[in-house]
Design a protein around this nucleic acid. Structure first.
Length: 276
DNA sequence: ATGGCTAGGCCCCCTAGA
């Protein structure tokens, strides 16, 4: 079973690339972030035509998340991250996806950027991370395969940036951000990429500006965190870096994991096969 | 990054991103 996350930076501007990548990668479940549209404006029919069920938690202009699944899914309603009824930003969606004779729970998230820090936006980021911690802790008690995937806007360590010195003082790299990230992992999550590759120079975002892509001046901020039951089944992780070189790309690229012991849909394929 | 792109909005200049 292939599960992916991708910040597409507007689904309307990126629809052609998204369909191209879905046909190429054939993931079973996809978490999309920054769709930047209301639910009604999501290009549902075009995605469904590729064999996906679609669940959307959007808003006008900013943010917005969606889940795509080949298998039937039961979506948590209403969307949004629990813990603050007054929060109107569309940044979290969760569903239980049927997988063989079992279920895989997937939470798709778009964690606030938080800049400039300090300030109200950074306070919102830290508050959001506190709420994510509380929600994740409750979900882990279910002892299910659970994947929290998305754009975390967190550079976990210096090796996750080509130029870490550029990020000192940034909301993505501040000590308080790192503390909240580590508390989340300490609940019992596994950072999927780090479970399979201890090296540096693995990035998921390259800025549009200043030739960042050409210089490989990237950062790793898109992550899949796995519950113990999911980590036990982790087979492989892949960053689809080549998508950044496509025409009119998102500034983020897809990250894909393969879980074993969960039946693959007939049309999906193994990461190992895809890599050859 | 002192912000060099990119996207959305009601839109010819602003906000936001990371």
């Amino acid at each position: 079973m292939l599960i992916a996350t991708w910040n597409v930076n507007s689904i309307k501007s990126r629809l052609d690339l998204v369909t191209r990548w879905l046909e190429e990668a054939r993931p079973d479940v996809v978490c999309l972030q920054e769709i930047k549209c209301v639910d009604e404006a999501f290009p549902r029919a075009e995605i469904e035509a590729l064999g996906y069920n679609v669940a959307v938690h959007g808003q006008k202009t900013y943010n917005g998340v969606a889940l795509l699944s080949r298998a039937p899914m039961e979506v948590e309603s209403p969307g949004g991250l629990p813990g603050d009824e007054s929060d109107e930003q569309a940044r979290y969606i969760e569903a239980a996806v049927s997988a063989g004779d079992g279920v895989v729970r997937v939470g798709g998230l778009y964690l606030p950027n938080g800049n400039p820090a300090p300030g109200p936006k950074y306070d919102y980021k830290l508050g959001w991370m506190d709420r994510l911690h509380a929600h994740a802790s409750a979900r882990l008690k279910l002892e299910e395969p659970f994947i929290l995937a998305g754009d975390y806007n967190v550079i976990p360590e210096p090796r996750d940036a080509r130029r870490p010195e550029n990020w000192v003082g940034d909301a993505l790299f501040l000590p308080e951000t790192h503390g909240a990230w580590r508390r989340l992992l300490a609940l019992g999550f596994t950072d999927a990429l780090r479970a399979t590759d201890e090296g540096g120079d693995i990035y998921t975002f390259w800025d549009y500006q200043a030739g960042a892509w050409q210089k490989n001046n990237g950062i790793r901020i898109d992550h899949l965190l796995l519950s113990p039951q999911a980590a036990d089944r982790l087979v492989a992780v892949r960053v689809d870096k080549h998508v950044r070189s496509w025409e009119r790309p998102s500034d983020h690229v897809p990250v894909v994991i393969e879980l074993a012991g969960v039946e693959r849909s007939a049309q999906s394929r193994s990461l190992f096969q895809a890599a050859t």
